[in-house]
Design a protein around this nucleic acid. Structure first.
Length: 269
DNA sequence: CTGGTCACCTGGAAGC
DNA sequence: TGCTTCCAGGTGACCA
């Protein structure tokens, strides 16, 4: 379930384990991910990992002069393990770093392992990305401007990575609940005041999830193998028919853009 | 440009 | 028990 919080939790776990280390090799056991693992990835040996950044749901391993781009898709997770640890099913990629390795497991293979020469932000997949929701640039005015003239449901706009990065299906529902906004509201009809409430709710929701180590519904584990526990804190996601924690009304489930949305019809208007 | 739909892939749970 | 159907964290490509 890697949305921004899971990717950020992964980044924070991975960075101290890999920064400054020399790449001693690469193992690709399955190259058929969302895109074929790019050929340049095999030539990483000899480069040094300088740091680990995040842009939206992408992890960027800065190798100086280029970056390894990792995406966890729907079911991916990254772990740091001792060198030589045998690989299990769905463990498609290892970055070897001397006495340890960084391993990608991704059962559904919607993830990606790509190489970006030079600045990763110029890569076609990253160049068109929207605002980082935890940055100062994501504020009421910015959200209101993004919404202007748009008829899409606000929930779908929140999830549109060309507008705002990192907010996926879980945290979109949770944030709209936090803001008291009905998920089907046309984006262009939100007042500046409601945009301000939504910005606050998104930031609070994402930060709370990061503090909880993310959500572990099925596949996600942190880089040390521990699970996150934000899934126990959901107010609405996956809770159709159960009581709203605030008012007790039954949580509703609708489908928007072929994705499930959960909300409280009493608390969210 | 906008909004809507489809595809990619695997596995777990629910239904019959 | 066994087979079928549905559903799941993402997002680029394609269409009208």
């Amino acid at each position: 379930m890697p949305e921004l919080p899971e990717v950020e939790v992964t980044r924070r776990g991975v960075e101290p384990q890999v920064a400054g280390r020399l790449v001693t090799g690469v193992e690709v056991r399955e190259a058929r991910l969302r895109w074929p693992v790019s050929a340049e990835v095999h030539r990483l040996a000899g480069r040094r990992v300088l740091g680990v950044a995040r842009r939206g749901k992408y992890l960027l391993l800065d190798c100086g002069g280029g970056s390894l781009i990792l995406h966890l898709g729907m079911s991916g997770s990254l772990r740091v393990l001792p060198a030589g640890t045998p690989a299990g099913r769905h463990e498609h990629f290892d970055l070897l770093l001397g006495d340890r390795l960084l391993r990608l497991r991704d059962p559904r293979r919607f993830g990606a392992v790509l190489w970006a020469e030079g600045s990763p932000c110029l890569h076609p997949l990253l160049a068109g990305l929207g605002v980082e929701p935890l940055s100062r640039e994501f504020n009421a005015g910015a959200l209101h401007a993004l919404c202007r003239g748009r008829r899409v449901a606000i929930k779908q706009l929140l999830m549109d990575s060309h507008c705002i990065v990192g907010v996926g299906n879980i945290y979109a529902s949770e944030s709209l609940y936090g803001a008291g906004i009905h998920p089907a509201t046309h984006a262009g009809r939100l007042s500046p005041q409601r945009c301000a409430r939504l910005v606050g709710a998104v930031k609070r929701t994402l930060n709370a999830a990061i503090r909880a180590g993310g959500s572990s519904l099925r596949d996600f584990v942190r880089s040390d193998g521990r699970k996150g526990y934000f899934q126990y804190r959901y107010a609405v996601y996956g809770r159709a028919g159960l009581d709203c924690p605030a008012c007790g009304a039954p949580i509703k489930r609708i489908v928007q853009g072929q994705r499930a949305t959960y909300y409280c019809a009493r608390c969210q208007r």
